[in-house]
Design a protein around this nucleic acid. Structure first.
Length: 359
RNA sequence: UGGGGUGUCGCCAAGCGGUAAGGCACGGGACUUUGACUCCCGCAUUCGUAGGUUCGAAUCCUGCCACCCCAG
């Protein structure tokens, strides 16, 4: 088969290409450059990542290309990202990036190159049965990335290969080392995909105008400080408030935002009730199977993650006219509008939605 | 300008003659393909100020300054 591999310049995608090549496939490495701007340190990491991709492909002995989806990224991912922040929510751009860029724009590009399949270095597995394709958690529980891929559908999965999804990170690095791939010891990347690690507040300030306002104590209703603009804070956030020492001396956390009055409500203590909810409503619900696991109104017992790397939470899910209603067994801390809630049944990622509100 | 009280890191606050706890904030790191949370490390050669007593003071004494309270 001809397989086009999305290569980031990291170990995971390096090993992905290596394994497919060893399996006898015709492998083509493709590097995506989707963000045309260097970091605040002035260093353009995309450039060194591209160099790493070339070095890895040369080591394996496969051809490579670079493509630029910067326009698509800006229009389909970044615009949404800014809109959400402007609306006072906290979006997860990477779930959209996967759906719109890696498993749409990139997939189409691969198909144009005559590929039978595309592959990425994601730590997830794919399964197929009479019902169609399923998305399974990566085998390494510490690295599972199914949370970020819950928006994929059947078309994307039908073309996708995830060669490292069945191994642990340690195994991946070992393979890279043994094969002499130059990226074997490269540090795992973090931060928004393609944009990278940033001073987040400073980054947002470059795109969104500040609207300073009052910070108020949820308990007393009294002003306890000033905020630089509601979009720079997210629910459950502690650092950056700058109001330490007041009140009873405990830590302060963001509890809610009032866009109407431009107020940031904060509360003291990690155990403040305002920080916890048990129910939530999610919109923009999508299912990997492309159809709901239960009929509307019926209840589904499953587990959910309200944020990446959260341990599985037992929930009862129900599809209503409003959206996906979730009732968690345990109290949930700082469930935040804009973030994705992803549902699982055992190893299978069912799909998910975007949190509208929680209570 | 009569009386009383208080002045220790940005904030709160231990210390009561033996050579500056702790919390919050803040900075750095770890963790992490979102944002957060969490964890770890760092953070006053100096205690309003000027003198004095003492081997030795933030701790005792004196002057001055500032703030607070009660009287006016």
């Amino acid at each position: 088969m001809r397989i086009v591999v999305g290569m980031s310049g990291g170990v995971d995608s390096s090993v992905t290409a290596l394994l497919l090549h060893r399996a006898g496939h015709e492998v083509i490495g493709v590097f995506m450059n989707n963000w045309e701007e260097s970091g605040e340190d002035g260093v353009c990491t995309a450039e060194s990542d591209w160099a790493d991709v070339r070095a890895v492909c040369d080591a394996i002995g496969i051809p490579y290309y670079a493509v630029n989806f910067a326009q698509e990224y800006r229009e389909r991912v970044f615009a949404y990202f800014l809109e959400e922040y402007r609306a006072g929510r906290t979006p997860n751009p990477d779930v959209l990036c996967n759906r719109e860029i890696k498993f749409k724009a990139f997939l189409d590009f691969g198909l144009q190159l005559g590929a039978d399949r595309i592959a990425t270095g994601h730590f997830v597995r794919r399964a197929q049965d009479a019902e169609g394709f399923r998305l399974l958690r990566g085998l390494d529980p510490a690295k599972d990335q199914s949370y970020f891929l819950y928006m994929l559908g059947q078309r994307a999965l039908s073309y996708a290969e995830f060669p490292v999804g069945g191994m642990t990170k340690a195994e991946v690095r070992a393979i890279a080392r043994e094969a002499g791939l130059p990226t074997f010891a490269k540090r795992d990347s973090t931060g928004v995909c393609f944009i990278g690690e940033r001073d987040f507040k400073a980054f947002l300030q470059a795109y969104l105008p500040a609207q300073p306002g009052e910070m108020r104590d949820l308990r007393t209703g009294q002003a306890v400080g000033r905020h630089d603009g509601l979009m720079y804070y997210t629910l459950g956030q502690r650092r950056g408030l700058g109001i330490g020492g007041s009140g009873d001396g405990r830590r302060w956390f963001v509890v809610s935002k009032d866009l109407e009055q431009n107020l940031l409500w904060v509360a003291q203590g990690d155990d403040h009730p305002g920080l916890y909810t048990r129910e939530a409503l999610a919109g923009q619900v999508t299912w990997i199977a492309e159809r709901p696991p239960v009929s509307e109104g019926a209840e589904l017992a499953c587990t959910a993650k309200f944020r990446y790397r959260q341990e599985d939470q037992r929930v009862r899910a129900r599809l209503t006219a409003e959206g996906l209603h979730l009732a968690a067994e345990e109290l949930q801390r700082a469930v935040t509008p804009g973030q994705s809630v992803v549902l699982y049944q055992g190893e299978t990622c069912l799909g998910g939605g975007i949190v509208e509100r929680a209570w």
